[in-house]
Design a protein around this nucleic acid. Structure first.
Length: 504
RNA sequence: GUCCCCUUCGUCUAGAGGCCUAGGACACCGGGUUUUCAUCCCGGCAACGGGGGUUCGAAACCCCCAGGGGACGCCA
């Protein structure tokens, strides 16, 4: 039998997501249980959104959780490079085969035309997808357009009739009509491959035997399978895991839950507990044990024990588990070491000291003043936000606007944050002093504290987001109606483009 | 709108036709231990979405419905 090889293929376009860790965990357990390999590949074909920092954060986060891999961009391996941006030559060579066989074609349609088409199809009741417009263009015409340097993409052809039937390891037979499948773009006009193309090409060349991924990919599996068929390659076994959910059952999102692995690290969870908790999402040990290590999970792993209902990521149970780990797994010395390592990172302390020094008269003043740097959520209620000029709604709005503003920052230095706050104060025509007041309370729990801008920079976005959101909820929360109004206003202030706010 | 996936306590889940009066865990409530609190221990509350089949027997198998979720990007 073919050697088992699985992979996690994150896209470095944001914070390291617990969903990534979740899928990585199952891939790793499955591979190791079969004596195979678990590898990491970076899917950075989105030139605009990918960043080196995000890639590094993701690697750090997975390593922190102990989800190590045996091949990857950081350690190399037989099938290097493991970063898609470095594999263009391969994609270029492979797409040529498809073009030659007429399995793919060049498309010169403008995004405006495609947008109109989509709107029209929405209006009718038909399936949304490309209408095959450029399929009509003759070979000479295509050659002409190319010689003229016209911008274009490459799409794959899709059978006009019939069904794609495939087997999912957990769900059994899945049948999707080809008419439902769009003529997927394989190569973008910037010459880089889309996910669908790069993913299939790499999985084949990296000899991936089992693709264990989120349920969100079920509908695009036919495209992937068709590519394997076009190339004459043997496809992998597919297995679609349930999606982690918010409390309201929607797909786990940053808006409704802390999704960044960094958040859990900064909040003082133990990596073993977080991984254990993820292992309990949709899976159970055969003997029903709830506390188990990743090694124990691997040893008893059985993919068929995955249950398919989307598990709600409920921090309450994680809290209980983490407490159990702290009590049962750490002796006093280990606790002391881990705590010190977590709390007193030299670079963090070095930044906090100057802020404290100018405000204390005795060392006994330090702890009360600095406590919020080491705490989770502050103990606050609505009365804490009472202000002569700001109503509760004003405060909610300011906090939400600041949060949106912070989430768009590329850097997180005090100057970046200060600029963002000053800019917002100006566009809102509010004094910076008033604007910052609710932020002081949200972050430090008090209206007087060390510089809130420096503090935010030190605490980081994950913790800041959690506290600002908590403050908003303490202030009564934002209703759907209010949220819409806020978004509209924020956009009109020219603070965000259309997509930025809704993106996760 | 079109298609796909899913459905057991509030939450994570056990359950592979009789062991199910549906089990465990978190949360919650009550009690005990503890100088308080927490921990720890004991107890309690609480679920098979609905309707049809199949079967001697259905939480489990089939069908329909409903509900939830996902996908429909030159994002992944």
């Amino acid at each position: 039998m073919q050697k088992v090889r699985t992979r996690i293929a994150p896209s470095p376009t944001g914070d390291p997501h617990v969903g990534t860790a979740y899928i990585a965990l199952f891939n790793r357990c499955f591979a190791q249980q079969h004596g195979g390999e678990f590898i990491l590949r970076i899917e950075d074909t989105d030139q605009v959104r990918s960043s080196a920092k995000s890639e590094q954060d993701i690697l750090n986060a997975l390593n922190w959780l102990g989800l190590s891999w045996s091949e990857g961009p950081d350690i190399g391996g037989e099938f290097a490079p493991y970063r898609q941006s470095e594999r263009s030559a391969l994609y270029n060579a492979e797409i040529l085969k498809l073009l030659e066989n007429q399995h793919a074609f060049r498309c010169f349609c403008t995004s405006e035309r495609l947008q109109d088409l989509r709107v029209k199809q929405m209006g009718e009741k038909s399936t949304i997808g490309y209408d095959g417009h450029c399929l009509q263009i003759s070979a000479e015409e295509v050659a002409n357009k190319i010689s003229r340097g016209e911008e274009h993409v490459i799409r794959m052809r899709i059978p006009e009739a019939g069904d794609c039937v495939f087997n999912d390891l957990l769900r059994g037979e899945i049948r999707i009509a080809w008419q439902q499948i769009d003529m997927q773009i394989l190569i973008k006009s910037d010459g880089l491959p889309t996910y669908h193309f790069a993913n299939v090409v790499d999985d084949h060349h990296m000899k991936i035997s089992h693709v264990i991924r989120g349920e969100e990919w079920i509908n695009s599996t036919p495209k992937h399978l068709l590519l394997y068929q076009y190339f004459g390659w043997e496809p992998p076994v597919y297995c679609h895991m349930p999606l982690l959910r918010n409390t309201d059952k929607s797909k786990l999102s940053k808006r409704k839950n802390p999704t960044s692995i960094g958040y859990y690290r900064d909040m003082g969870y133990l990596p073993e507990a977080v991984v254990n908790y993820l292992g309990m999402m949709g899976w159970t040990m055969p003997d029903g044990r709830e506390k188990f290590t990743i090694q124990e999970m691997t040893a008893s792993f059985d993919l068929s024990r995955v249950s398919l209902g989307g598990p709600v990521f409920d921090v309450t149970k994680l809290d209980w588990l983490n407490g159990k780990y702290i009590r049962e797994n750490l002796n006093d010395e280990q606790f002391a070491n881990l705590f010190a390592e977590w709390a007193f990172k030299p670079e963090k302390v070095a930044r906090i000291i100057p802020l404290l020094k100018e405000r204390v008269e005795r060392f006994t003043d330090v702890a009360p003043l600095a406590a919020f740097f080491f705490a989770g959520l502050p103990e606050i209620d609505a009365t804490r936000f009472e202000h002569k000029k700001l109503s509760q709604e004003d405060s909610r709005k300011i906090l939400q606007f600041i949060l949106w503003q912070l989430e768009q920052l590329r850097g997180f230095d005090r100057d970046d944050i200060e600029a963002a706050c000053l800019g917002l104060a100006e566009t809102l025509n509010t004094k910076i002093r008033d604007l910052l007041f609710p932020l002081f309370v949200a972050i430090s729990g008090k209206s007087t504290s060390t510089s809130v801008i420096d503090s935010i920079s030190i605490l980081g976005l994950d913790i800041t987001r959690a506290r600002v959101r908590y403050a908003i909820s303490v202030l009564g929360g934002i209703s759907n109606k209010e949220a819409k109004a806020f978004e509209k206003e924020f956009r009109e202030l020219g603070q965000a483009s259309d997509k930025q706010l809704t993106n996760d």
